[in-house]
Amino acid sequence: MSLDAYRITSEPYYQPHGEEIEIFRAAYDERLPVMLKGPTGCGKTRFVEHMAWRLGRPLITVAAHEDMTAADLAGRYLLEPEGTVWHDGPLTQAVRQGAICYLDEIVEARQDTTVVIHPLTDARRVLPLEKHNEIVPAHADFQLTISYNPGYQSAVKDLKESTKQRFLAIDFSYPPPQIESAIVTRESGADAALADILVAIGQRSRNLQGHGLDEGASTRMLIHAGRLVRGGLPLATAVQSSIVLPITDNPDVRAALRAAIDACMP
């Protein structure tokens, strides 16, 4: 099966704000697995797409979820009229054909599932398919990347030490104001002044992280707000529906956040 559908043809926009591109490239050159850490909506997925485009590799993305089994990643036998047929899972496809496999929000997956990636992430670089009685050696171009939001971290959902220690990590956080403002401008089409206001609003909500909010407004939220404004919605309404309402259900926090946002408006 060809992976052409997984190739990224045009450049996904990504604005670096550190050495993440160099680190990722160096890691890829050595085929070392990478872990992207950071809050939601700060550009982790976009970064992987951008890197896959830069490196010219197909990108297979798997969003992990609570019910994901090892078979969902590696593959399984399916019944067809003429008998049972083995189907490669997304991870096996990437391993065989040399793609970048990106496991999004890996902590969501059950811990027994994450263990299947262990042999791929050390010196062995193989994927044992015990049901198919096969050991798949990784293609020379294969690389594994996972993302991980430390905000969710809890005793219930945390990466095992044995998983964590196999990865290089790149820390993502919200970009500095000027860069974030440029990103908002680029992605939403808002003008620079509006982007500055939106970024200031974002910072207000991030100030409340741990004091009423679990996480502040993401860059993605700010972009959404910018788009709504560009589409003709008044700024206050746009911010209300794209930031204040989604981010919290607590009426007290909402009221306080709204007052703080009002202080950012010109």
Binding site: N207, H211, A256, L257, A260, A263
Partner: peptide, 11 residues
Amino acid sequence: HLKTFVTALLG
């Protein structure tokens, strides 16, 4: 309310 408001404003 004030506590949350002021925290949001100035961090």
